[in-house]
Amino acid sequence: MTLNDVWFIAIAVLWVGYFVLEGFDFGVGMLLPVLSRDGVERRVMINTIGPVWDGNEVWLLTAGGATFAAFPEWYASLFSGFYLPLFVILVALILRGVAFEYRGKRDSDRWRANWDKAIVFGSFVPALLWGVAFANIVRGVKLDASHEYVGTFWDLLNPYALLGGLVTLSLFATHGAIFVSLKTVGEIRVRARSIALQTGVVAAVLAVAFLVWTQVRSGSAVTIVMAALAALAFVGALGMVVAGREGWSFGLSAAAIGLAVASLFVVLYPDVLPSTLDPANSLTVTNAAASPKTLGIMTWVAVIFLPVVLVYQSWSYWVFRRRIGVQDIPA
């Protein structure tokens, strides 16, 4: 195994972490008008992710930075070819972050309602478009011999990619509902469990269709096993919701998302961005990688600082582990 392979695995791990962690707070944001009945309940829902949502976004920044440093050719082709959807995701994430900080700056119901809409929008759009983007990466795009994307924006909206977007959207909604049920008490918890089952059934159907399509296209024995384990974990998560075991349900839901995302990277390897025009034009872990010296320096930096980040984030989740309810919100 070379450093190219190590950093491909590292980037895969970062994206798995991002989808698992940011996935549930996207879900909470999307379900804000569905699960809450008044301003106090909306505050309860926002408080469930308040201490962690910005830390979860660090996984995205780290994944993007690692891609830029370890595979600059991949980064250049990806961010130029996917410029418009990635720009829309960026705008949505900025608007969402501002909304979390600004909704409480004025004592006005209309003010808070408008920022709550921004939270819903800023959660819905990335949840959908990340699935579209990753499905296109796995499917391949129109790369010419110089590794330039020569397709159009509409080429990215193919049936396979759109199905991928619906999968991430429904999975994140279910993941978020399970998280709310894990973190709250009272009526919100009951409603969250009900919504988790409803969205979970839809997500299961869409995810199975997407994973089967992926396996038919370019699967292997390893990815079939991973996809099957992901499906079993998700079914187990829904079963734990019925049993009222939210902790187990959330863990199994996280495992299902993690296994599904990891299986896509296994399908992709050794390519990082396949070309649908000519396989010879594809970007791989070899021709898209940075120099060995760069990868070596990055490896030492990761070995030193990654454990610190993981310990700190784990500690923050432990500190804010208690369930909350409307009784915890001051008048």
Rank of each mutant, 00 (worst) to 15 (best):
S218P: 04
W213L: 15
A133H: 00
V180Q: 03
K142D: 09
F82T: 01
H175F: 11
A204N: 10
L211W: 03
G176N: 00
V202M: 02
T184Y: 08
V167E: 06
A76W: 05
V212N: 10
R139L: 14
L143D: 03
A145N: 06
K142P: 05
G176M: 03
A192H: 06
R112A: 15
G164W: 09
L156T: 03
R112M: 12
A196E: 14
V88H: 00
I89Y: 09
Y149W: 05
D155F: 06
V132Y: 00
S146E: 07
V180H: 00
L157Y: 04
R189F: 00
D107S: 14
Q198Y: 06
L163D: 13
P159S: 12
A118Y: 01
Y102H: 11
A177S: 12
K117I: 11
F79P: 05
I119K: 02
F124I: 13
N158A: 12
L197S: 12
V125L: 10
V132L: 12
G176K: 00
T174M: 06
I195P: 06
L90G: 00
G140Q: 10
R96Q: 02
A127H: 00
A192G: 10
V212T: 13
V205T: 08
G176V: 07
D144H: 05
F210E: 14
Y160N: 07
